[in-house]
Nucleic acid binder design. Structure first.
Ligand code: MN
Ligand code: MN
Ligand code: ZN
Ligand code: ZN
Lengths: 124, 124
DNA sequence: AACATAATGATTATCATTATCATTAAGAAA
DNA sequence: TTTCTTAATGATAATGATAATCATTATGTT
């Protein structure tokens, strides 16, 4: 498991973390659960560990098609979503995007969520 | 109701549309339903009309905190969300944002979803 | 080895949304 | 206007994702 946490390192925690890291996509809790079926892990544990890791900053999450997707990439980046196959790719943020924060709100920006939508190469 | 649709104009359709237009925020289906309680409209009808209007392009929608929010503004714009009070504001998109589309995907971009997050003036 | 208690897993509960279907009422036709 | 066709409605059940409950298990410490 990645650099530390003050939590107990259970077998299940390892399994969940390794699964998200090994997959290079943005799995839902259920997709992680399915991957780990053979280990006998409980669905509730998968949900608990994933959201715990988000709280700890080890993972990030976002909403997509009515469910929460988990992201091993915690550094700022954008996503591209294909409107046909619904797949998600990591893409770079535009240069200097943070300097383009809206002034209307005159609030300080902590983070942003940018998703491009279109038809991917394969579907086109 | 706004310029055209090839659908029957029911009393309920009018009520739902007027509600979203009159509110200047981004209501959920249930919030629209609560507003229209006294009219006797059914919850299923509110859900149906809202998603129908999105299909027709009269409204837009996005996911927020585990539910679908509806937006009267169908022109491209971004959102600012306060991480404390969870309110949502409309803000302008950065100038020329569409020219900053990622090349990695080499796909044509149809639309984008940009949400800034921070603490609003009131909460600060 | 014994202990304290955080984590687990089976299950139930909750919440948002969709599906079903008998009834109602737009809008066209007579 | 009355009749007619059928899309829309509303009550309710079903679904799907996630959270809560709680007895049991097992990690990390003493
Ligand atoms: Mn990502
Ligand atoms: Mn908006
Ligand atoms: Zn695709
Ligand atoms: Zn606020």
């Amino acid at each position: 498991m990645s650099p530390l946490t003050n939590k107990r390192v259970t077998r299940q925690r390892q399994l969940v973390y390794d699964c998200v890291i090994d997959r290079k996509d943005h799995p839902s809790a259920n997709e992680v659960f399915v991957d780990l079926q053979s280990s006998g892990i409980g669905l509730a544990t998968v949900y608990r560990q994933l959201s715990a890791m988000v709280d700890e900053g080890i993972l990030k999450s976002f909403e997509h098609s009515g469910q929460i997707r988990y992201d091993r990439l915690v550094t700022p980046h954008a996503h591209f979503v294909c409107s046909v196959c619904d797949e998600i790719w990591d893409v770079d943020l535009p240069k200097n995007i943070f300097s383009m924060a809206p002034v209307e709100s005159n609030a300080d920006i902590e983070e942003l969520d940018l998703t491009w939508k279109g038809i991917c190469k394969a579907c086109k």
